[in-house]
Amino acid sequence: MTVIGDAVRYLNDPLSWTRPGGILDLLGDHLWMTLVAVLIGAVIALPLGLWLGHTGRSGTIVVGTANLTRALPTLALLYIFTAALGLGQLPTILAVAIFAVPPILSNTYTGLREVDPDARDAGLGMGMSATRLLVSVELPLALPLIAAGLRTAAVQVVATVSLASLVGGGGLGLIISNGIFTQRFGQALAGAFIVVVVCLGIEGTLALLQRLLTPASLRAGMRSRAGRRGRGAAPVAAEA
C-alpha cells in the first residue's frame, strides 16, 4: 500500500506535472515520437498495401514477411539503431516505426481484397480506370479496416516508445526508469499508470475517429452481416 500511496502523491504533486522535464514535457516528447513513428510506418505500409490489395500480386507473401518483424526483439532492435545513430529520439522512432508497418500493411491489404467483387465490377462497367476504381470504390470500402490498422499501430507504438528512456530518448518511460533506478517505486508505478491511460486514450480517440470515417450505410451492412453470422452460429451450438 505504501507504493500505491507514493504513486498517488506523485500524481497529485503539481510540480510532477509542470516542472521542466516533468510529466507534461515528457508526455509531449512521448506523443511526438509516437506520431513520427506511425507516420513513417504509414508512409511505407499504406502505398504498398494499396498496391498489393488492388493488384493481388504476391500480397500474401509480402504481408507474411512483414508480420515476421513482430518477432524481432524490441530492445535488440533499439540498441542496434542506437549503436548506429547514437543516443536520442531518432533510434527509438526508427525502431518502433518497424513495428507500425505490419498492422497497417495487413489491414490495408485485407481491406482491399475483401471489397465486394460486385462493387468492383460495377466500377469497371462504368468505364473507371484502375486508379479511379481504387480511389472511388475500393479505398472508401476498405477505409474502416485501414483505420483499424492505424489504430492498432498507434497503440502498439505509444506503449513501445516507453523504452526510449533506455537510450536517452526521454518520454514517459523516463518516469518509470528513474523510479526503478532510485528505488522510488511509487513514481515508477505512477509512470506506468500514465502510459496505460495514454494508450487507452489514444485507443478510444482513434476508435471514435474510425467510426466517424465509416459511412453509415457501411456500418449498417457490417452490423447486418454480424447478426447473420450470430444467428447462423446458434443452431450449431444447439446441435453440439
Rank of each mutant, 00 (worst) to 15 (best):
G227P: 04
T18M: 10
F185E: 08
W51N: 07
G125E: 06
L141M: 14
I4L: 15
F99A: 01
R184Q: 15
I80V: 15
L141Y: 03
L48K: 00
V195T: 13
R219F: 06
L105W: 04
I180G: 03
A142L: 12
D118K: 08
L218N: 05
E239I: 12
A190P: 01
P235D: 03
F99N: 06
G169Y: 14
G125Q: 05
T18F: 15
G56N: 04
Q89N: 02
L206D: 05
Y10F: 15
S217M: 08
A95H: 02
T18R: 12
R57S: 01
I44Q: 06
G49P: 02
P73F: 08
C199S: 15
Y79M: 08
G59I: 03
A190F: 08
L72K: 00
R57F: 07
P215L: 05
R229W: 13
R223A: 14
E239T: 14
R223L: 13
T131V: 12
G88S: 06
W32E: 15
L85C: 04
L90S: 03
T110R: 08
I180H: 09
A147G: 06
D118W: 02
M33R: 10
W32C: 11
G227N: 10
A192P: 04
Y79H: 00
V96F: 04
V195E: 13
R70K: 12
P215C: 05
R231P: 06
S162G: 09
L134K: 02
D6Q: 14
P73H: 11
G149L: 07
Y109H: 09
T60I: 11
L52N: 01
G125T: 01
Y10R: 06
R225E: 15
S177C: 00
P140H: 01
Q210G: 15
P102W: 01
G171L: 10
L206Q: 06
V96S: 09
L68K: 00
R57W: 08
Q210C: 11
Q89H: 07
D13H: 08
T131F: 12
I44D: 09
L218R: 14
I4N: 02
L213G: 06
T34S: 11
T108I: 04
I146Q: 02
R19L: 14
P117Y: 09
E203G: 00
D121I: 10
P47L: 02
G171V: 10
G49I: 10
S16T: 12
L75I: 15
L87V: 11
G88C: 01
P235N: 03
G22Y: 05
V195H: 08
G173T: 04
G86D: 07
G169A: 14
T60W: 11
Y109L: 10
I180V: 15
P91L: 13
I146S: 04
M1T: 12
A226W: 07
L90K: 07
G28L: 12
R57I: 05
L11I: 04
T131P: 00
S177V: 15
I93W: 09
A154D: 02
A190L: 02
V197N: 01
T152C: 09
A234N: 00
G230A: 15
G227T: 13
I194Q: 01
A95C: 13
R113F: 05
